[in-house]
Amino acid sequence: MSEAKPERWAIDAGDSAEALLDIPPDAQRDRRFEVAIALAVRCPAELDGAWLELQVLANGNQQWRRRIAASNPGHSDGLDYRFARTVPVGEPLRVLAKVAVRGVRRERVVIEAEEV
């Protein structure tokens, strides 16, 4: 019996306020994923109280949340988060990234999961 090829899942939600990555269950084995979420925003030349926030939920439970002041006038700024999750046999992994901003423009939110 051959080893299963490691899985790789990704979603690029563009400038949406949410990104959802659904990894279906495997009926035969446990899996472990390294998950990376990246948010990119475009900052105006004058920041004037601008901020960006990223909230990450895994299977409905809040995994992480951070709000920071935008700090790169006239250029891009962003937030990144990484975590590992073991997914038991027969269970899915659902990763939801929620984005909130003030005074900056959402450019891209991406979720990637690689089996390790």
Rank of each mutant, 00 (worst) to 15 (best):
L54Y: 00
E91I: 00
A69H: 03
L79S: 00
Q63D: 09
E114R: 11
V110R: 04
V95I: 15
R94C: 06
S2I: 11
E46P: 03
L47F: 04
F83G: 01
S76N: 14
L93T: 02
T86R: 15
R66S: 10
P73K: 10
E114L: 12
V101G: 01
A45Q: 14
A40F: 05
E91S: 08
W64A: 12
L93Q: 03
A27D: 13
A36V: 04
F33H: 02
G60L: 07
V56I: 15
A70G: 01
E107A: 12
S71K: 14
R85G: 01
V56C: 06
R42V: 11
R31E: 07
R108Q: 13
A4T: 13
A4H: 13
Q62C: 11
A113F: 02
R108T: 05
R8A: 13
G60N: 08
T86P: 00
D77S: 10
N59G: 13
Q62T: 13
K5P: 03
L47Y: 05
P73G: 07
A45F: 09
E115W: 02
A17V: 13
A100N: 10
V95M: 06
A17W: 08
A113R: 05
P6Y: 05
R65F: 11
N72K: 09
V56G: 01
D12A: 07
G90Y: 01
W51P: 00
D22F: 12
V95N: 01
A38G: 12
L20K: 11
E18G: 06
E34N: 14
A40R: 10
P92S: 08
T86A: 14
Y81G: 01
E3G: 09
A113Y: 03
P92D: 00
C43D: 12
P73A: 08
W51V: 00
A58F: 07
D77P: 01
L79C: 04
L57E: 07
R105N: 03
R67T: 13
A100P: 03
I68A: 14
A36S: 10
A4M: 14
L52Y: 02
R108A: 08
G74Y: 09
L96M: 12
V56D: 02
V35Y: 00
V87H: 06
L96I: 12
R8S: 13
V109I: 15
A84M: 10
L57C: 06
D77L: 08
A84R: 12
N59K: 12
M1V: 09
D48F: 09
I37H: 02
V116P: 05
W51H: 02
R105V: 02
I11R: 09
D22M: 12
V110C: 03
S76A: 15
R82N: 11
L52N: 01
E91G: 02
D22R: 12
R82W: 06
P44M: 00
R94Q: 13
